[in-house]
Design a protein around this nucleic acid. Structure first.
Ligand code: FES
Ligand code: FES
Lengths: 151, 151
DNA sequence: TGAATAAAAGACAAAATTATCCTTAATTAT
DNA sequence: ATAATTAAGGATAATTTTGTCTTTTATTCA
């Protein structure tokens, strides 16, 4: 579905949102650990996410790290996709045609419509803060290491 | 969503299904033209799709080309994904975690469920032949060339 | 002020995907 | 049989994505 970069971004933002809700600022290392992605790669992703402090804010130096303001936690999930340049995935044609519309529908368009609508709804009708929600069973953000795979 | 390879595959199969319904066999060149993908790349994809004649059948030599049997047109769309090794996309976690299940749901799992179900339904409840259907407005499989982009 | 810390930025490397080209094998028609 | 046609297969290249490493900049604290 999404690029790995974007998947990491979604996981990272949800993690930071949760920590920020408890007024905790988190380091790059902590984010990487929490979402199970390589630290130096995570760094690049965090740069995209904290550009202009649009989604997450960053502070350098001792005790620094990343956090989200209550305001940015009110952003729709879509904002993460936009920051990663993958918002088109919600609206693109399932066959990869340049545009998806009723005007010139592809053979799958009609049947795909509900899925597309669901995707759009998923990312526009839920805020980051809401998705990051508190219930214990919503905590999973890191996959268990695949045994015998270094890193 | 899918790899470009898979998008091409979906378009190619739908095209061939339609032609086969009219008892026409189509050449590689015709397929590439119809779906707007580079011919030599399309060749590779066709190889995957005609391996063991599982989805499309191929015949070499003059007048040769590709076609689908009525039986293979009865296959669910999913079969194309399987042939391309992308069937996991229907069931994978939207955050990219290794497994997606109620047992260990990610923060988006609940909200994502309807989309996932829709995706699965889309590819399991529709046959290739059905998707390739006849109505005029279902004919679009090729995107107009982007002006000023060589190929 | 100076040293330590942590993210930003940039250069580079590896891997996967996308794409091209050339040779081979199968089939048909002459 | 031979030549022509068409897909299969293999090698290689370009591009994009993914990942690493090093240097720089900002911030804090002693
Ligand atoms: S045009 Fe293909 S899904 Fe809408
Ligand atoms: S566990 Fe993430 S979508 Fe199901």
């Amino acid at each position: 579905m999404f690029l790995k970069t974007t998947e990491y971004a979604l996981r990272a933002v949800l993690y930071i949102a949760r920590e920020s809700h408890e007024d905790r600022r988190v380091s790059l290392a902590a984010v990487a650990r929490a979402i199970g992605s390589p630290a130096s790669f995570t760094a690049k992703i965090m740069q995209q996410l904290s550009r202009d402090n649009r989604i997450v804010c960053s502070v350098r130096g001792p005790g620094g790290g990343f956090y989200m303001t209550p305001a940015s936690r009110q952003l729709p999930m879509q904002a993460i996709l936009e920051a990663m340049g993958e918002e088109h995935l919600m609206t693109k044609c399932v066959l990869g045609l340049r545009q998806c519309s009723e005007k010139q529908p592809c053979p799958m368009h009609e049947a795909y419509q509900p899925v597309k609508a669901g995707l759009m709804r998923l990312f526009t009708h839920h805020t980051i803060g809401e998705m990051a929600g508190e219930p214990e069973w919503r905590k999973r953000l890191q996959q268990k290491r695949r045994p015998g795979l270094k890193r």
